[in-house]
Simulated assay, not measured.
Amino acid sequence: MNYREKIRNQLIFTGLAIPLGIAAGSIAALFGRILLYIGNIRDEYVYFLLPFLGAVGVFILWSYQKFGDRSSKGMALLFEAGHGSKETIPLRLIPFVIIGTWLTHLFGGSAGREGVAVQIGGALGHTLGRRFSIESGEKILLLTGMAAGFSGLFRTPLAATFFALEVLTVGVLEYKALLPALTAAFTASYISGALGLEKFSYVLSKNFSFSPSLLFKILFLGFLFGIMGRLFSYFLHRTKKLFSEKLKNPLLRILIAGTAIGLFSLLCFQGRYSGLGTNLISMSLNEGIYSWDFAFKFLFTVLTLSAGFQGGEVTPLFSIGATFGAFLASLLGLPIAFSAALGYAAVFGSASNTLLAPILIGAEVFGPEMLPYFIAVCGLAYICNGNLSIYPLQKKKK
Rank of each mutant, 00 (worst) to 15 (best):
I7W: 04
R8E: 15
G15F: 09
A23D: 00
L35K: 02
N40G: 15
I41C: 07
R42I: 09
Y47I: 11
L50D: 09
V56L: 12
V56S: 08
S72M: 13
M75P: 05
A81K: 07
A81R: 09
G100T: 04
G100W: 02
W102Y: 06
T104F: 04
S110K: 00
E114C: 02
G115L: 14
A123D: 05
G129V: 10
I134S: 10
E138V: 10
I140T: 08
A147V: 06
P157L: 02
L158K: 05
A160I: 00
T161N: 00
A164P: 06
V167A: 06
L168R: 11
Y175C: 10
F186Y: 07
I191M: 04
Y202D: 03
S205K: 15
F208P: 05
S211V: 07
S213G: 15
S213D: 15
K217L: 12
I218H: 12
F225A: 11
G226D: 11
I227A: 15
K246V: 12
K248S: 13
P250I: 06
P250M: 04
I254C: 04
S265W: 08
L266M: 04
L267V: 11
F269C: 08
F269I: 10
Q270N: 13
G271P: 01
G277F: 06
D293A: 11
F294E: 02
A295C: 01
F296M: 14
A307M: 10
A307C: 08
F309G: 07
G311V: 14
T315N: 12
S319T: 06
F324E: 03
S330D: 15
G333T: 09
L334M: 11
P335R: 15
S339V: 04
A341R: 07
S352E: 13
L356M: 09
P358H: 01
I359S: 04
L360N: 06
L360M: 02
E364R: 00
V365Q: 01
F366A: 01
C378D: 00
A381M: 00
G386K: 09
K395T: 10
K398D: 15
